[in-house]
């Protein structure tokens, strides 16, 4: 554990909780992509199956349980409790285009051919692109609520901070896991456009709207 990873995890946690609280408080999930949330639920489920097979630390286990519960809680709010507020007309990204290639890639480029390892790798590849339906939705509607922008910024920052963590770990522990590092870089690059808009608009008190 180092400061970059801790900040990354806290940023990740903040993003997930921010989304959950926003939906709960406003009683609405307008502007949120249900498809991205489905993908994140698949990501957490396939990655954190190791809750039952390997123990790293209390910290890791608690975070995994929180991520899983919050993710399924978000799905419950979006597709059940506040379903009428779900803007499915604008949430039109085809997620099979992400699910299938990520699955194929996880069989091609993987550290070891065991069920848990392939599932872990799949979760890494899928996470890298899971935000695409949400970004697509923002581009279709041309705007995002400020709180949604904060959510996206925290979620994007998490992997960027993990990149710093991997650089640090490379020099201090000789840690080098190219699968997660390259996927993490791809994931962060996808947010770059959004980061630019966030810094130039949202931080100056303006609403995020596309020209």
């Amino acid at each position: 554990m180092n400061i970059f990873r801790l900040c990354g995890d806290l940023s990740h946690l903040l993003a997930i909780l921010l989304l959950l609280v926003k939906i709960w408080k406003t009683r609405s999930c307008a502007g949120i992509s249900g498809k991205s949330q489905i993908l994140f639920a698949i990501v957490y489920t396939t990655r954190y199956l190791d809750l039952f097979t390997s123990f790293v630390s209390i910290y890791n286990s608690v975070m995994k349980i929180v991520f899983l519960s919050a993710s399924y809680g978000t799905l419950y709010l979006m597709f059940y409790k506040f379903k009428p507020t779900y803007d499915h007309n604008h949430d039109s990204f085809r997620i099979l285009y992400l699910i299938v290639p990520a699955l194929v890639l996880s069989f091609v480029i993987v550290h070891a051919y065991t069920l848990m390892e392939v599932l872990w790798t799949y979760s890494i590849y899928l996470e890298a692109v899971a935000i695409m339906p949400q970004l697509f939705m923002v581009s279709r509607t041309g705007e995002a609520e400020t709180i949604t922008s904060h959510y996206l910024f925290a979620l994007g920052s998490y992997r960027a901070l993990y990149i710093l963590n991997w650089i640090y770990r490379y020099y201090t522990e000789d840690f080098l896991d190219l699968i997660v590092i390259i996927a993490g870089i791809v994931q962060t690059i996808l947010y770059c456009d959004f980061f630019y808009l966030y810094i130039t608009k949202v931080l100056k008190g303006k609403r995020l709207s596309l020209p």
């Binding site: 990873r5 995890d9 990740h12 190791d50 097979t53 390997s54 790293v56 890791n60 975070m63 995994k64 991520f67 550290h111 070891a112 065991t114 069920l115 848990m116 390892e117 872990w120 993990y162 963590n165 997660v180």
Partner: peptide, 10 residues
């Protein structure tokens, strides 16, 4: 053998 490959991150 540890099938989880020692993934210690989240």
């Amino acid at each position: 053998q540890d099938s989880s490959f020692g993934h210690d991150e989240l």
